[in-house]
């Protein structure tokens, strides 16, 4: 790690302002992703703003019948919340499929959304990587790309977003609440929160410098069968090769988001009209325009088969 100064923020507005005025500042919440990357010199903040003291660790009912999840609610607490288990089971399931018990006890809602890619070349600091060092190239293109993205990729980057939670939040039509450096709040639909890599893969979300996430909002529950299916190389404590978060209704309609395939949770609302026609038809539309590599072309088949299993589970 490189040296850094450290402070504890007293309020969200203070935290955002401190981040905006201090060069090289970063927020730290659970620390489970940031410290991992700092140890490898992939992240080198000069100043850490500890946000753990902000009172953003509660889950509250909203007037419109939904939930407002504080940015600091730990993954364990969110997955265990009675209302989430009953009305947003997809979210509990996605969280519980991620990381380990120890990590979920520390990981926060905001930190989970902002966790960085697990592309092996991003972690290997001697390799070119446009995300780690803009303009240096991409070692993954033409390299070992079995785990990487198949859709929404660019000539600059083919990384995936590794979060399970974000896939569930995308299917659930969640939105992100923030305060900007000048203290102004804003609300960003999750659909617009993460960016595709384009030619600036180092810019991963639409957040402005110093912008602090304060909460994630869930709309009113929509009922249906909630299923999160994660396919991975070992049964627990591994990132997804492909995952599917789905809410499926008796009439065959539904909401489906994919993990492990793109730089953001992947959802194609227009393709959901195909769900009653089965997995093949829907998967074809969800992955229209996919450009897999030789190493990860298997993910196309894997998505279709995983979706078929999800649809069968919803019927059964």
């Amino acid at each position: 790690m490189t040296p850094f100064t450290y402070e504890r923020a007293g309020s969200p507005a203070e935290a955002a302002a401190a981040a905006a005025r201090t060069p090289g500042a970063r927020f730290i919440a659970g620390g489970t992703n940031l410290l991992d990357l700092m140890k490898l010199q992939i992240e080198t903040p000069a100043h850490l703003i500890d946000v753990n003291g902000l009172a953003l660790d509660t889950i509250e009912a909203t007037k419109d019948g939904g939930l407002r999840i504080g940015a600091l609610v730990r993954n364990t607490a969110l997955a265990a919340d009675r209302r989430v288990r009953r009305d947003y089971a997809l979210l509990s399931r996605a969280l519980l499929a991620g990381a380990s018990g120890q990590l979920r006890n520390k990981a926060t809602t905001a930190g989970n959304l902002l966790q960085r890619t697990r592309c092996p070349y991003f972690y290997d600091t001697v390799q070119p990587c446009n995300k780690r060092r803009p303009g240096s190239g991409c070692a993954a293109i033409g390299g070992v790309s079995r785990q990487l993205a198949i859709i929404g990729t660019s000539e600059a980057c083919i990384a995936t977003h590794p979060s399970d939670m974000a896939v569930a939040l995308r299917a659930l039509d969640a939105s992100v609440e923030t305060v900007q450096a000048d203290g102004a709040p804003r609300r960003i639909p999750l659909a617009e929160f993460h960016r595709l890599p384009g030619d600036t893969p180092h810019i991963e979300t639409v957040l402005e410098p110093g912008e602090l996430i304060t909460a994630v909002r869930l709309p009113k529950p929509v009922g249906g069968r909630h299923i999160y299916r994660k396919v991975r190389d070992r049964a627990s404590y591994a990132f997804a090769l492909v995952s599917i978060g789905a809410i499926l209704h008796e009439d065959g309609s539904g909401q489906v988001a994919l993990g492990g395939v793109a730089h953001k949770p992947w959802r194609v609302e227009a393709a959901e009209a195909e769900l009653p026609r089965g997995a093949k038809a829907a998967a074809e539309q969800i992955l229209a325009g996919a450009r897999p590599s030789r190493d990860n072309a298997f993910k196309i088949t894997l998505v279709e088969r995983t979706l078929a299993a999800v649809l069968a589970e919803a019927r059964g």
């Binding site: 730290i28 659970g30 410290l35 140890k39 850490l48 120890q102 990590l103 006890n105 520390k106």
Partner: peptide, 28 residues
């Protein structure tokens, strides 16, 4: 030292965490 093995597990406030992925100064 990267959250991948659990050898560093301790209890903080009764909750198990990986002590390698947290800073000492964050535990006032």
């Amino acid at each position: 030292d990267h959250g991948q093995c659990g050898a560093c597990t301790v209890l903080v406030g009764g909750v198990r965490i990986n002590s390698c992925l947290t800073l000492a100064v964050m535990h006032q």
